[in-house]
């Protein structure tokens, strides 16, 4: 069955084209395909596009854009849209789990009736795909979390979560690029800086890349953190 996208208003100056509500490789591939198509041939008044897991948000100047014509065109081009094939880099990211590095590890384990080491094993054995970079510069949203440890967000977000936090929220997983507010659960922390404005490249990861987590001992933290602050990637490129 062909699923037609939903067109959701975001005020007068934006529109979200929603391909579905799941974290799904094909849905995400369609988002990237529509994004590429609109970038190649942008409608008058389009300001920018924001691709996410499962939707593309178009921001525009409402006084320059013909909304009816845009919807008509979107209906046409999304009818037979094929997911964009993306082959990204696979990164191995070192993580210190639990303790002061991952203050929610034990709570998450308890919530699921698992031991902390079982949660670590489950979390570190998956291959994650970066579905999008968003929320903050370089924040990598990961798909591929094992449903056995999927955990609903906290009811009240924390105002500050440290840079490098490895966290999960609902079915999503993420790598925190800088201190930020979040309602997700903190399992561990990596010294890897996914965003460093003074480094070239400033952004380490891209949508379509893959991530595997490698549990490391806390004794290695200081040396790796120093390397990261010196502009080294610390995350390793590995072959799939």
């Amino acid at each position: 069955m062909v699923q037609t996208p939903r067109f959701l208003p975001c005020g007068d100056s934006a529109l979200t084209v929603e391909f579905g509500s799941a974290i799904d490789r094909d849905l995400n591939g369609k988002v990237l395909a529509l994004d590429a198509l609109l970038r190649r041939n942008p409608p008058a008044g389009l300001i920018e596009t924001v691709p996410t897991y499962r939707s593309l948000t178009l921001q525009f100047d409402p006084t320059l854009l013909d909304y009816g014509a845009l919807i008509h065109r979107l209906e046409e081009v999304t009818r037979d849209l094929q997911p964009q094939a993306t082959a990204g880099t696979r990164w191995r990211v070192p993580v210190v789990y639990g303790g002061e590095y991952g203050i929610d590890l034990e709570d998450v384990a308890r919530h699921h009736g698992l031991t902390s080491s079982k949660v670590i094993e489950i979390h570190a054995s998956a291959v994650y795909r970066i579905y999008m970079i968003g929320f903050l510069p370089g924040f990598a949203y990961l798909g591929g979390l094992d449903p056995r440890i999927a955990t609903s967000r906290r009811t009240q977000p924390r105002l500050k979560v440290p840079s490098g936090s490895i966290m999960i929220g609902g079915e999503q997983a993420g790598i925190v690029p800088m201190e930020m507010p979040s309602g997700w659960h903190l399992l561990g922390r990596t010294p890897v800086l996914s965003y460093a404005p003074e480094r070239d490249p400033a952004f380490l990861f891209a949508a379509g890349d893959e991530i595997i987590f490698e549990p490391i001992d806390a004794s290695r933290w200081d040396a790796l953190e120093k390397a990261a602050l010196n502009g080294e990637p610390v995350a390793e490129r590995v072959s799939a």
């Binding site: 005020g11 934006a14 929603e18 799941a22 921001q59 968003g134 906290r154 009811t155 309602g183």
Partner: peptide, 14 residues
């Protein structure tokens, strides 16, 4: 599942 945000969006957390 996280999606795009614009200026002036009114989100309602838990």
């Amino acid at each position: 599942v996280s999606d795009g945000i614009v200026d002036g969006h009114i989100q309602v957390p838990g």
